[in-house]
Computed example of a mutant assay.
Amino acid sequence: MPRISLVRHGQASFGSDRYDRLSALGERQSVLLGQHLRRIGFHADAWLSGSLDRQRSTLAAVLRGLEVASSTDFHEGFNEYDHEAILGAYLPRVMADRGLTPQELNPLLGDNRLFQGIFAQVMKHWIDGTPHERPPFETWKAFQARIHASLERLAHSGHERIVVVSSGGPISLAVQAALDLSIEKTLALNWSIYNASVTELKMRKGELLLAGFNNVAHLQLAGEEGLLTYR
């Protein structure tokens, strides 16, 4: 019965000129996870990540904390959706609908609650397939199909225990597949996934089951302020 641990990457560099890299805090979160796994005697048959820098760096830091050899195995099927392309396509429409000017955007980006509301509207346009004038990028349906196919590939890999470092979107879709969630609940779930958290899935008789969700015991036990982050 294959068991898959889905780890969300550590905190990335939101608001900087390059989001796709771990912050110093994200590095710390990832090392703490590895150290925790070492203490509890955790072992896996396979360690891999998506190909994004924040995902691969998280895996490297986890393995460093675990004190095992680094893994270079990555699988693009577990990459996050292209949020920059999606924002570029739909943010102007959402801002116009809200009566916002470009000058009013920057303050909103610094407010998590306000930004989440705007991004939720942007995501709805993406999911609905609203036409846009930007170059083509991955659709919501293609993203769903990619994640489901990647999970299916792991389930038939022959490994019993697999760790995959991914992102909030793919992890949410994996939970959706296990629990048959609506799109609305899946999106709400996405906003609640902590950085460097662990979600557990298992396959039984060809069915994907949820065995644990959003575990951050390793961060809570560290007793350091500010370790729990969402982005």
Rank of each mutant, 00 (worst) to 15 (best):
R93P: 00
Y90I: 00
M95N: 02
R134A: 08
N106R: 08
P107E: 14
L105Y: 06
A120M: 14
A85H: 03
L108T: 12
N106C: 00
I86T: 07
R93V: 07
I86K: 01
I127W: 10
E84R: 08
D128S: 09
T101V: 04
Q116F: 05
T130H: 04
H83P: 07
N106G: 01
D97M: 11
L87N: 06
A96M: 08
N106M: 12
I127V: 12
R98G: 02
R134G: 04
M123C: 12
N106W: 13
G129C: 01
L105W: 12
H132E: 04
L108W: 13
M123P: 02
N106P: 12
L91F: 00
K124M: 09
P92V: 06
G129N: 04
L100S: 03
L100I: 02
I118M: 13
A85Y: 01
I127F: 11
G117E: 07
L114C: 08
A85F: 01
E104R: 15
E84S: 12
P131R: 07
N112R: 15
H132M: 02
F119R: 03
L100C: 01
W126G: 05
H125C: 10
R113A: 15
F115T: 14
L87Y: 02
H83Q: 05
V94I: 11
W126A: 05
R98K: 11
I127K: 13
N112G: 01
T130M: 10
P92D: 03
F115W: 15
E84H: 01
P92H: 08
D111S: 13
L91V: 00
P131Y: 00
P131D: 06
T130Y: 07
L109N: 08
A120E: 14
H83K: 00
V122Y: 02
Q121N: 06
G88V: 06
A96V: 15
E84A: 15
M123T: 08
E84N: 04
L108C: 15
P107R: 10
Q116K: 09
E133D: 07
F115I: 06
I86G: 03
Q121R: 10
E133I: 06
L108N: 05
A85S: 05
L114V: 01
R113K: 14
W126V: 06
F119Q: 12
A85C: 00
P107L: 13
E133T: 15
Q103D: 12
A120T: 14
T130N: 04
G129Y: 00
W126Q: 11
P107M: 12
L109W: 14
L100V: 00
I86H: 02
L108S: 09
I127Q: 12
E104W: 09
L87M: 03
G99Y: 11
N106Q: 10
G110T: 09
I86D: 01
K124V: 11
Q103E: 15
E133C: 08
F115E: 13
A96Q: 15
L91W: 04
R98H: 07
P131C: 10
N112C: 08
G117L: 02
T130E: 06
N112T: 14
E84W: 06
A89G: 13
I127R: 13
E104K: 09
Q103N: 05
V94R: 08
L100G: 05
R113D: 15
A120G: 11
Q121T: 03
P102I: 07
L109R: 15
Q103P: 00
L91P: 04
E104Q: 15
I118D: 04
